[in-house]
Design a protein around this nucleic acid. Structure first.
Length: 420
RNA sequence: GGGGGAGUGUCCCGAGCGGCAAAGGGGGCGGACUGUAAAUCCGCUGGCUAUGCCUUCGUAGGUUCGAGUCCUACCUCCCCCA
């Protein structure tokens, strides 16, 4: 459907040609709105973790493009909804996060946004409100009378997210059912407070967004718009953002710049073009050239993807350093002292540091048992030599240029750094 | 309210005559092959101070030399009837 209309606004043109568009509530009028330059778009983010991960990157990029094409981006933090706890996590005893944790998480997430968006008080400067500002003070009866009467249960029952659960006889709690109401209310409230007129999100948010638009109409706001991005999966169908080591975090404290670079470097061939369009700002002509590369040559495109995507998040210098670290490690087989490292007190090596414990400490394996198994399978190396004996120990004699290099498989490396 | 069924390795799905660290998948990790890719093949996929010890099958008790397996109560979910 995006192909049928040629957007006239820069914003929608960019989204369409770079592959961000999935659904849109009223493409033509939204296009006109964007062209007139008073588009204020928001996307909601949870703050259940101290950092966002790659799964949110596509949304962040949409906000970034919005700002770059003359709109105002609003990154809504779900401080209020986080306090309730996302009920979709099955029977997983939803841990209620305390206020302090939520505040800390917010701070972490804000750091990431500051990389992609320009915050401030100007017309197109980004803002980051928190829905706890209006949700926590809600009075149930008042809410029902003023807002609740505008929700049509008939309509809500036809929403995919609801229908799916009902059809499969899966429980849908009242709390969950209300989740979309709160989100719809957020939209209207953001419109009143900040003039927000567009909500964006992943395709799974479509229903919630539409309900918000409806609510706005019934409550007499100006016309609101909705737009979703496609659900991202890798070419072989896996969900994005999860790797062996867990989520691909955007905060450098939770995932090193080097590992972030590696994540993109290891993209599948079939994903390179799409990822370049979504997660870098290279011109489309350049991307077309890169994605046409085949076989060995596509590795060059992957390196560019990794460096460009990393540069957006961590800065050009850090990205180039990660690229250089990878080059030394993989292409020269040399020891790059810029690999991720772990500090170990020097005295631990005096009596010999057990290899099993060393790999656990480096975070490459989760337990000594796993280390043992990996040794059996030939997966662990110390200074590039396979570990044969699980009882081996590391001593001062093993230091090469001041480090001991531990490897899991061919790709994951960590340096042990003695600490006095 | 009555009747019937189900909850299994804390990633998921799922088998399990009283001897079980528990079949089989998926996913993940490692190895081989490659290009730090995909596909394919092989191995691994509770913890530890490790020829042994500890902890796991919804929860709590009980029977037994021994319980995921039998009994009792409870919790949660599903189906049928009212």
């Amino acid at each position: 459907m995006p192909e049928t209309i040629r957007p006239k606004s820069d914003f929608l043109a960019v989204l369409a040609e770079r592959g961000f568009l999935h659904q849109c509530s009223d493409l033509a009028r939204l296009d006109a709105k964007a062209k007139s330059g008073d588009l204020v778009g928001y996307i909601g983010f949870d703050c259940t973790a101290p950092s966002l991960h790659v799964g949110s990157l596509i949304q962040i990029m949409m906000l970034r493009w919005l700002q770059k094409t003359g709109g105002k981006p609003v990154a809504l933090i779900g401080g209020g909804t986080t306090r309730v706890g996302d009920p979709s996590g099955k029977d997983e005893s939803r841990k209620l996060l305390n206020e302090k944790t939520i505040e800390a998480n917010k701070a972490g997430i804000q750091r990431t946004f500051a990389r992609f968006l320009r915050f401030g008080a100007g017309k197109t400067d980004a803002i980051m409100p928190d829905n706890s500002e209006w949700l926590l003070g809600l009075n149930y009866i008042d809410f029902l009378r003023e807002v609740g009467r505008h929700f049509s249960v008939n309509r809500m029952l036809t929403m995919d997210s609801v229908k799916l659960r009902l059809d499969r006889d899966q429980e849908l709690s009242f709390l969950e059912f209300n989740y979309m109401c709160l989100q719809a209310y957020d939209f209207v409230e953001l419109h009143k407070r900040y003039g927000v007129n567009l909500q964006m999100g992943g395709s799974d948010q479509w229903g919630n967004i539409v309900i918000g638009i409806d609510l706005g109409r019934r409550m007499g706001t100006a016309q609101l718009y909705g737009l979703t991005s496609p659900l991202l999966a890798t070419a072989s169908g896996a969900k994005m953002g999860k790797t062996a080591q867990g989520a691909v975090w955007l905060d450098a404290d939770m995932l090193s710049v080097y590992d972030y670079w590696q994540y993109w470097r290891n993209a599948e061939d079939g994903d390179v073009g799409r990822f370049l369009k979504l997660f870098t700002e290279l011109p489309l002509a350049e991307i077309a050239r890169l994605e046409a590369l085949r076989d060995l040559e596509i590795n060059e495109a992957k390196k560019i993807l990794a460096t460009e995507a990393t540069a957006l998040l961590h800065g050009r210098a850090a990205a180039e350093q990660a690229a250089e670290t990878a080059r030394r490690t993989f292409e020269e087989g040399a020891l790059a002292e810029t690999l991720p490292s772990v500090d170990i007190p020097r005295r631990d090596f005096a009596a010999g540091f057990g290899v099993l414990a060393a790999f656990v400490r480096a975070g490459l394996v989760g337990s000594t048992g796993e280390a043992r198994r990996q040794i059996k399978g030939g997966g662990l190396k110390v200074n590039d030599a396979p570990v044969e004996d699980e009882r081996a120990t590391l001593t001062e004699a093993d230091f090469v240029n001041g480090f001991i290099k531990l490897s899991l498989g061919k790709k994951r490396h960590v340096l042990l750094r003695p600490e006095d």
